[in-house]
Design a protein around this nucleic acid. Structure first.
Lengths: 341, 341
DNA sequence: ACCGTTTTGGTAAGCGCTTTCCAAGAAAGG
DNA sequence: CCTTTCTTGGAAAGCGCTTACCAAAACGGT
C-alpha cells in the first residue's frame, strides 16, 4: 500500500485536537497514564472526525508486539482443515488476534518457508495443523526453524502429533481407531480391509495401526491394508484395489471420511451394495459428509474445538516444558456398519 | 511478540559483515543501487550465519507498503468459502502476498470491523467474498469504509454481486439458475418447489428469481418457494415445509448444494425415495458433495478459480472505473433429476 | 506560605528498516 | 595530468507509533 496522502496519522489527530501526539496516543489506547477527561474527549472526537485508524505496523514496531498468529494448513479446502480453521478463527476473534493463513499443499518446504514468513511478520505464534510425516531430515529442519521462531519471541502450537517440542493438541488417532475396531468386531465383523492413506503420513499410519491392533486384540483377522492418497480419489483407488485383491473383506476402514466417500463411489461403480455387500467405516465425522448414503460409521473428532484449543494455548503463558492436550475421538456407529447377522 | 534479545536485526548483520546498515540493506534486497560483489557476498553470508529474517513490520513502515491481503468470508468451514479461500491462497502464494483471514459469521458489523482491521494493518487489499444482503444502511456504511480504505491506498475486490463500487468477480447466479430451470423443464418437470434461502441474502434471491423466471419462461408452473437458512439444517427444514404445503411438487431446487443435502435427508426422513418420489437439484457443485446419493444435479461454479481471479484483480493496476469479471455456472445433470417418463 | 507529592502534558528517543544525500574513490576524457 | 562523470559506501532522516523522562501545575499537610 503506497502511502497516499490519504492515510490519517496520529499527529493529524493530535493537531486537530490541539494536543501533542503523546497525549493523543494515551487518550486513544487507554495506557496506564491518565489523560484529563476533556482532552481525552477532544482527541477521540478528532479521531472520529478524521476517521483515524492507527497504523498497526507502527504500533507493532513501537510496542515490539503484534497480534498476528499464523495458521498453517495442508489444504484449506479440505473440510478437516477448514473445520479446524473455523475454530481457530473464532478463538482468534475472541482474543483480539489476527489469523494469517498459509496453505502448504503437502509440500514440507512450504511449511518451513511459511514459518519463516510468520517470523518475519513477528507473529505472536504459529499453529501447525498438518500431520507430521515420517521424515527425519525435514523434522530436524523444522525443529531448527521452530527454535529460531521461539528465540525471536514467538510461540508455536502443533495440532495432531507430539513430535515437536512445542505445546500440542494431541489427537488420539491410534486409541480412537482401536476403539472403533473393537466396536466393529463387536458387531460381528472379522475380515477387514484398511484404506490406509499415504505410508509416510503419521496420522494415517496411527489410525491404521490403531485399527489393526484393535481388530487383532478383539479377535478379528489381521486386516488387509491398501495405501492410497488421503483424498476422495485416493479412497476410490484404494477401495478398487482392495476389492480386487481381497474380495472376501466384510468391512473396509478408510482412515478418513473423505477417503470413505471415495470408497463408497468405488464400491458402487462395481455394482456392490452398501452395506449389504461390504460395510464401511471412516474417521473424522466431517460435518458435510454426515448425509452420505449409507450414513457413515466413523470417529467423531471435535475439529472446531481442536482449533479453538490450539488458539487457547497460544494465549496461555508458555510452560517450562511443552504442554500436551489430548483429544479423544468418539466412535459413532451408523448405517454403513450394521450388526452382522 | 515481546522483542526478546533473540531477534536478529539488520544492524547485527551489518556489524557481523563489517559494513553499514545501508549496505546491508542494499545487499539483501537487491535495490536499484549496486553493491560491490565481495561486500554483498559478505553480507549474505553474515545473514545466513545469524539466521537473519527481516522485520516485515519495519520494512512495511519504511517502504510504506505491505504484502498483506485481507480475505473476508462468511464462514471458513462452509465448503463454498473454503474452496474460494483455497483459490485465493494459491494465487496469493504465486504473487508473494499474505492472506489475513476473517470470518464474519453472518454479522454485517463484523464485516465492517474486519475491514477496519485490514486498514489498520495497511493491507494492500481486501477481498470480500460474502453475499451482499438487502440492507441499504449497512451497504452505505460499507461503501464509506471501502472509500476510507481506498483513500488509505488499499484496494477492495468483491466476489459475487456488483453492489459495491469496486472490482468484482460477478457470479452469474441468476442466469445460471435460469439455465438450470430450462434444462429441468426440458427433462419433463413442470411443478417445482424452491428451497429459497434467507430472504435478505442476495445470492439466494438471485438464484431463486433466476430459477423462477426460467421455469415460467420454459412453460412450467410458477414454483412454490419456501425460505430457510443457507445451511444443511435450513435445507432440511425448508424441504419438510415444502413437502407439507405442496406435496405435488415433482422437483425441488435448493439454492445451494448444502441445503440440497439437508433436503435429501428430510425427504428420506419422510420415507420418500429420491429421485422416484421427488427430484432435486442444487447449486455450486461442492466437491465433497459430489458423491451423495442420488448424485445431485447442480450448477457447477469454478470456486477455486473465482478465488484466484479475485486475487488476480488485486494484483492488477486499478482501473478508472470498477472492473467486472463475469463467471458463469455450468449446469450439470445427474441422477437426482432423471428424465421424466 | 512553604515544601513534598501527585497528577498530567509535552519532548524526544527509539523500534528496524529504506532511501536520500553526501563524499570519496575510480574511471574516463581531453 | 587535471577535470568531469560514474560508481558505491556510509551517515542520517524519516516511516507512525509508544513510552521513558522532564517539567509544570495542582494538591495536601503542616
Amino acid at each position: 500500500m503506497r502511502d497516499v496522502a490519504g492515510a490519517v496519522t496520529l499527529s493529524d489527530v493530535a493537531a486537530e485536537a490541539g494536543v501533542s501526539v503523546a497525549t493523543a496516543s494515551r487518550a486513544l489506547n487507554g495506557s496506564s497514564r491518565r489523560v484529563r477527561d476533556d482532552l481525552g474527549e477532544r482527541v477521540r472526537a478528532a479521531a472520529e472526525r478524521l476517521n483515524y485508524t492507527p497504523n498497526a505496523q507502527a504500533q507493532a514496531m513501537a510496542r515490539g508486539a503484534t497480534t498476528v498468529v499464523g495458521l498453517l494448513v495442508h489444504d484449506i479446502s479440505d473440510p478437516y482443515f477448514s473445520a479446524i480453521a473455523a475454530g481457530v478463527s473464532r478463538a482468534a476473534e475472541d482474543l483480539g488476534l489476527l489469523v494469517l493463513l498459509g496453505s502448504t499443499r503437502g509440500r514440507p518446504e512450504e511449511e518451513l518457508r511459511y514459518l519463516n514468513t510468520i517470523r518475519a511478520q513477528r507473529g505472536r505464534a504459529a499453529i501447525l495443523t498438518g500431520s507430521r510425516r515420517d521424515d527425519p531430515v525435514h523434522l530436524q529442519r523444522l525443529v531448527a526453524e521452530v527454535e529460531a521462531f521461539g528465540r525471536a519471541g514467538g510461540r508455536v502450537v502443533a495440532v495432531t502429533q507430539a513430535r515437536l517440542p512445542v505445546d500440542t493438541v494431541v489427537i488420539e488417532n491410534r486409541a480412537s481407531a482401536t476403539a472403533l475396531a473393537r466396536e466393529l468386531v463387536g458387531l460381528g465383523y472379522r475380515r477387514f480391509g484398511v484404506l490406509a492413506g499415504p505410508r509416510a503420513l503419521l496420522t494415517a499410519r496411527d489410525r491404521h495401526r490403531g485399527f489393526h491392533d484393535g481388530v487383532v486384540a478383539a479377535g478379528g483377522k489381521p486386516p488387509v491394508a491398501v495405501h492410497g492418497d488421503f483424498t476422495r480419489d485416493g479412497g476410490y483407488a484404494a477401495m478398487g484395489e482392495l476389492l480386487d485383491t481381497a474380495p472376501h473383506v466384510e468391512c473396509a476402514f478408510a482412515v478418513n471420511d473423505v477417503m470413505a466417500v471415495g470408497a463408497i463411489a468405488a464400491s458402487r461403480a462395481r455394482g456392490l451394495r452398501l452395506p449389504e455387500d461390504v460395510a464401511l467405516a471412516g474417521f473424522d465425522d466431517i460435518a458435510t459428509l454426515r448425509d452420505v448414503t449409507p450414513a457413515l460409521t466413523t470417529v467423531r473428532l471435535p475439529l472446531e474445538e481442536i482449533g479453538a484449543q490450539a488458539m487457547a494455548m497460544v494465549a496461555e503463558e508458555p510452560a517450562a516444558s511443552p504442554r500436551r492436550r489430548r483429544v479423544k475421538g468418539q466412535v459413532v456407529l451408523r448405517d454403513s456398519t450394521p450388526r452382522r447377522a
